[in-house]
Simulated scan of single mutants.
Amino acid sequence: MASLRAWLSLPEVTPAEDYGFFGPESVAWQVWSYPTGLTIGFQRAVVIEELDPRLIAAVDATSAIYTRPRTRYDRTLRYFAMVMFAGSQATVAAADILVKIHSKAVGIDPVTGEQYDANDPDSQLWIHLTAWHSLLIAYERFGPGKLSAADETQYWHECARAAELQTCDPDDIPRTREGVAEYFEYMRPRLIGSDIAKKAMNHLLDAEVMLPPMPPILRPMFTLVAAFLRRGTLATMPRWMREMAGLPTGRVLDALVVPWLSAAMTVVSLNTRLELLLLQLISPTTVPVAAPMLLGVPPKNPVTTTPRRAQREYGYDIPAQAHHALRDKQRNRVLGKGLAPSDEGLIESQPILGDIA
């Protein structure tokens, strides 16, 4: 019952320093703040990502999604939310430390025999576009519906702005739905439904892995919720992706889950406290980031900026140029000496992204 009481006790809301890179007038806030965003949209993103053989090789090598699934999910969701809703200084600091974390994810992919590096611009582009596309798809399927043409154009331009926090080139971000579709078609022959990808995707489709221990009386309810989220996430995935990963492709269940999840998301969207309680259940460290936005608490300085301006102002290198000494050191340890990478970036990240224990 102590865990239940902790779940029902929301933390005090602290205003952000500024609106970061988007703010309440952005289309990205509209899409990402809807309950579909940090639930089905986020789950879809992390599941689909695993089809990239380079990414899944890095994920499988660390085994963190299996050994500490809740903290891994929590920290990743917190970073996603920071990009969208946190103040500019905190977010560029998080993006900088992420380069250090990714420096340890280097090695040889056992499936393709090629080198992988989580800081590789192509890998970062795949992660970034998969995330932004997934949150939009979930919003359209289970939320208010398709954006207007003008709003969607703005959304993809905002996606390019957020790419300034990654090691990829923002100029590589498509600015239209058609361009994004072309990107996924380009990636399609490069994706592999390997055994390690299938294992990870099935694991991440189980929403229960991100939940804390539940009192016995609540377990049946949350098992049902997790089943609906899994089916809803599957319903947003193209059939070719599901076939590649050996996942169910039934059209009937796809259709049946839509009205139920749409109704549930509508109910949650009308009750901010309920939305925060659900977020606290799946990602407690994300609540302080999202709460000011959901509650309409203005920041101390109600302005927006861009990642590039913030990086210059607060003294951070752009991610593509950051921490090359550490990245070289990690590559030498792993690829040159056959040793395990060091955890210094991961340990250093805890005050920003949350504990790894």
Rank of each mutant, 00 (worst) to 15 (best):
P238M: 07
T153G: 12
M293Y: 08
N202K: 09
P220S: 03
V13K: 02
F80T: 15
L204R: 11
G338T: 14
H128Q: 00
G145E: 03
A207T: 01
G315P: 02
R327I: 03
T304M: 02
D355M: 08
L276I: 11
K329G: 05
G345P: 04
E178F: 11
G345T: 03
T306F: 04
V180L: 02
L147G: 10
M214K: 07
H324S: 09
Q330M: 15
K300M: 03
E140R: 15
Q89D: 15
F21V: 10
G250C: 04
G338M: 14
Y186G: 12
V287M: 12
A95G: 15
N119Y: 11
P15N: 05
L218P: 00
G20N: 07
I127R: 08
I282F: 15
Q154K: 13
G345M: 03
K199F: 04
T39Y: 08
E185Q: 10
E49Q: 15
L218G: 04
G113H: 01
A6V: 08
P170W: 07
M214A: 07
L205N: 09
I173T: 03
E344L: 15
A28I: 00
D52W: 08
L205D: 02
W126S: 05
P144Q: 02
P307Y: 02
G37F: 01
T286Q: 01
A149W: 09
D169G: 05
M214P: 05
E348S: 03
A227M: 07
P238Q: 10
S194R: 08
H128A: 04
Q321A: 15
L234T: 04
T71M: 10
D195M: 15
A105P: 00
L205R: 06
D317Q: 12
F142I: 00
P259K: 13
E185V: 10
D122H: 12
P302G: 00
T285Y: 06
P35Q: 09
P69M: 14
H133L: 09
Q350P: 00
E275C: 12
I347G: 11
A207K: 05
V209G: 05
P319M: 15
T176Q: 01
A138V: 10
D171M: 13
A94Q: 04
I127S: 11
D151P: 03
N202T: 01
S9N: 06
Y66M: 12
Y19S: 06
D195F: 14
Q124H: 11
W260P: 09
A227T: 10
V99F: 09
V13I: 05
P298W: 03
P212E: 07
P307Q: 05
T167L: 02
V59D: 02
Y155R: 03
Q311F: 00
